[in-house]
Amino acid sequence: MRIAIDPGHGGKDPGAVGGQLRESEVALAISLFLRDELVDGGHSVLMTRETDVFITIGDRCRLANTWKADLFLSIHCNAASSPQAHGMELLIFPGSARGRDLAGHIWGALRDIPGLRDRGIKPRGDLGVLRGTSMPAVLVEAAFISNPENRRDHLETTHGRRRIAKAIAQGVMEWV
């Protein structure tokens, strides 16, 4: 299977910031672990970025579409004005049955991570990477970078990042 992985943000766009963490660096770290898991599982992987560079949303979609990816995963961290907001959620393009099915498998694996609240699967038609890709696409909001416990338990450490990547990979491999 040909899988495009899109680490959110990058370069001049750090994404959300929580504590000393930038969303762009956490998304890249999780994505690199995810790439390794999927390659080890026999899949071909295209990364939209492998370093801290800025890539437009249009270019991210073009890369995946031109490469003819079978699925597209965009990795992010959530943020909210309230530091109490926590958990993971998956975003899909409205009406995408295959995207919802893929998200369901990923969601099932992420749900097993201790202390990661389930915020569900939500349709979002306003997100360019979901709207502009021609294959099933899921945007993973791994945890809240604005929540101190989510940062500590899931986003700051190699262990937490690798655990998220393994869960996403498990869901993908169950879907294929």
Rank of each mutant, 00 (worst) to 15 (best):
residue 132 G to M: 02
residue 14 P to D: 04
residue 141 E to C: 05
residue 51 T to G: 02
residue 63 L to F: 14
residue 55 I to Y: 04
residue 16 A to C: 08
residue 124 R to E: 02
residue 90 L to Y: 09
residue 37 E to I: 13
residue 139 L to Y: 00
residue 61 C to L: 05
residue 50 E to H: 15
residue 100 R to P: 03
residue 163 R to F: 01
residue 54 F to I: 06
residue 85 A to M: 09
residue 52 D to Y: 07
residue 113 I to G: 12
residue 143 A to L: 11
residue 116 L to C: 10
residue 18 G to R: 02
residue 150 N to F: 12
residue 111 R to N: 00
residue 128 G to W: 11
residue 5 I to Y: 11
residue 152 R to H: 12
residue 110 L to G: 14
residue 36 D to S: 02
residue 92 I to T: 13
residue 164 I to C: 08
residue 158 T to K: 15
residue 118 D to R: 10
residue 94 P to R: 01
residue 64 A to D: 00
residue 119 R to F: 07
residue 28 L to F: 00
residue 137 A to E: 12
residue 66 T to G: 11
residue 32 L to Q: 11
residue 87 G to D: 13
residue 39 V to D: 07
residue 147 N to M: 09
residue 120 G to E: 08
residue 52 D to Q: 11
residue 128 G to C: 07
residue 105 H to D: 01
residue 96 S to Y: 00
residue 148 P to K: 03
residue 143 A to T: 09
residue 148 P to W: 04
residue 98 R to G: 04
residue 165 A to Q: 01
residue 63 L to S: 14
residue 21 L to V: 06
residue 93 F to N: 04
residue 92 I to C: 10
residue 98 R to A: 03
residue 173 M to G: 07
residue 47 M to F: 11
residue 146 S to K: 15
residue 151 R to A: 03
residue 170 Q to T: 10
residue 146 S to W: 14
residue 62 R to G: 10
residue 140 V to G: 12
residue 79 A to C: 06
residue 103 A to I: 08
residue 110 L to D: 05
residue 12 K to C: 06
residue 168 I to F: 03
residue 66 T to F: 04
residue 87 G to Y: 15
residue 158 T to P: 14
residue 97 A to M: 07
residue 124 R to Q: 08
residue 107 W to T: 13
residue 84 Q to E: 11
residue 12 K to A: 14
residue 30 I to C: 06
residue 128 G to V: 13
residue 17 V to D: 07
residue 159 H to R: 15
residue 12 K to E: 05
residue 24 S to F: 08
residue 114 P to V: 06
residue 99 G to M: 01
residue 91 L to V: 02
residue 154 H to R: 14
residue 160 G to A: 05
residue 94 P to K: 07
residue 49 R to V: 15
residue 5 I to S: 04
residue 73 L to K: 01
residue 94 P to L: 01
residue 131 R to E: 00
residue 74 S to G: 15
residue 11 G to Q: 07
residue 114 P to I: 03
residue 116 L to D: 09
residue 98 R to K: 00
residue 50 E to V: 14
residue 130 L to V: 06
residue 117 R to C: 11
residue 151 R to D: 02
residue 24 S to Y: 02
residue 5 I to W: 04
residue 41 G to C: 08
residue 112 D to W: 11
residue 164 I to R: 00
residue 118 D to T: 09
residue 89 E to P: 03
residue 167 A to H: 07
residue 117 R to H: 10
residue 66 T to L: 15
residue 97 A to C: 10
residue 141 E to P: 09
residue 92 I to K: 06
residue 107 W to E: 14
residue 152 R to C: 06
residue 147 N to Y: 05
residue 47 M to C: 09
residue 100 R to F: 12
residue 115 G to S: 11
residue 135 M to K: 07
residue 165 A to M: 02
residue 61 C to G: 03
residue 94 P to C: 05
residue 105 H to E: 00
residue 90 L to K: 05
